[in-house]
Amino acid sequence: MDRQLISRLAHADHPIAAPLDDDSVRRLLAQGVPRGDARVLDLGCGGGEWLLRALAAHPRLTAEGVDVSEPALAHAREAANRLGVPDRLVLHHQDAARFTSPHRFDLVLCVGSTHAFGGLPAALAAAREHLAPGGRVLVGDGFWEGEPSAEAVEMLGELTDLPATLDRVVADGWTPVGGHVSTRRELDDYEWSWTGSLASWALDHPTDPDSAQALDAATTHREGWLRVYRDAFGFLCLVLRPTSQ
């Protein structure tokens, strides 16, 4: 079963592909959008949910999104049409790490997509290349909230704890001006939604050739969450400005 299809089904009831509730998303966008006529870029936009919410909140804002999943971009186009904002949204079907643009952006987002660049430092370096003077970056990535097991590290990668993550960001020339650490409720709600949405689809479509694989993916993910990384994994969003232009 295609990983992009699994992701789309798993996020059916949680369109923000990160452990954040609606209030957290709203507050982060309020911290990140510098003004009402800002130009915004999302690197790894998926279904475009961050951009769509920013467009709905700011009638003069324009946005661009980049993603490798054409079905996710098609979903974003349909949603933009329903919201009446298709003229203010441009979508690019390509690898976010290779995206170039003739202009710079007032806000660059990369939430839950740093893996597309090889990790947080590389994602921030790429975001800097797209940032207009006075602009901001809104980035979201995992960190170790507790002591991880070797299995957790193998599953989720070489993360650091919260202070070390901030130290690395600051050392790379960024100053945090806002942020959010996902709560236990946000983390659990996201995982329940991810596994539950995918499992429900499988049970609702028993004759689909992908049904058994979808149910197995949901079960495997749930077991990994509960038994391997639930007590160790945290998620951090930061609103950043370059320390020097």
Rank of each mutant, 00 (worst) to 15 (best):
S69L: 09
S69Q: 08
S69N: 10
S69A: 10
S69P: 06
E70K: 12
E70I: 09
E70R: 15
P71V: 06
P71D: 07
P71C: 07
A72Y: 02
A72P: 01
A72C: 01
A72V: 02
A72G: 02
A72R: 02
L73P: 04
L73M: 06
A74K: 11
A74P: 06
A74T: 13
H75C: 10
H75F: 11
A76W: 09
A76K: 10
A76P: 09
A76L: 10
A76F: 10
R77G: 08
R77F: 06
R77Y: 06
R77I: 03
E78A: 15
E78V: 12
E78S: 14
E78K: 12
E78N: 09
A79F: 04
A79Y: 04
A79D: 10
A79K: 12
A79V: 03
A80L: 01
A80D: 00
A80F: 01
A80E: 00
A80T: 00
A80Y: 00
A80K: 00
N81D: 13
N81M: 10
R82V: 11
R82A: 15
R82G: 08
L83I: 03
L83M: 11
L83W: 04
G84Q: 01
G84K: 00
G84D: 03
G84V: 02
G84W: 01
G84A: 02
V85N: 08
V85G: 08
V85E: 09
P86S: 09
P86G: 03
P86F: 02
D87P: 00
D87V: 00
D87M: 01
R88D: 04
R88A: 06
R88N: 06
R88C: 05
R88F: 09
R88Q: 07
L89Y: 00
L89R: 02
V90S: 15
V90D: 12
V90Q: 14
V90L: 14
V90H: 14
L91W: 04
L91Y: 04
L91D: 05
L91F: 05
L91G: 06
H92E: 01
H92F: 06
H92G: 02
H92V: 02
H92S: 03
H92N: 05
H92R: 08
H92T: 01
H93Y: 04
H93S: 11
H93E: 12
H93K: 11
H93R: 15
Q94R: 14
D95G: 02
D95K: 09
D95C: 05
D95A: 14
A96L: 09
A96E: 05
A96K: 07
A97I: 02
A97D: 05
A97H: 08
A97G: 03
R98A: 15
R98T: 13
R98Q: 15
F99G: 06
F99C: 11
F99V: 07
F99H: 15
F99P: 04
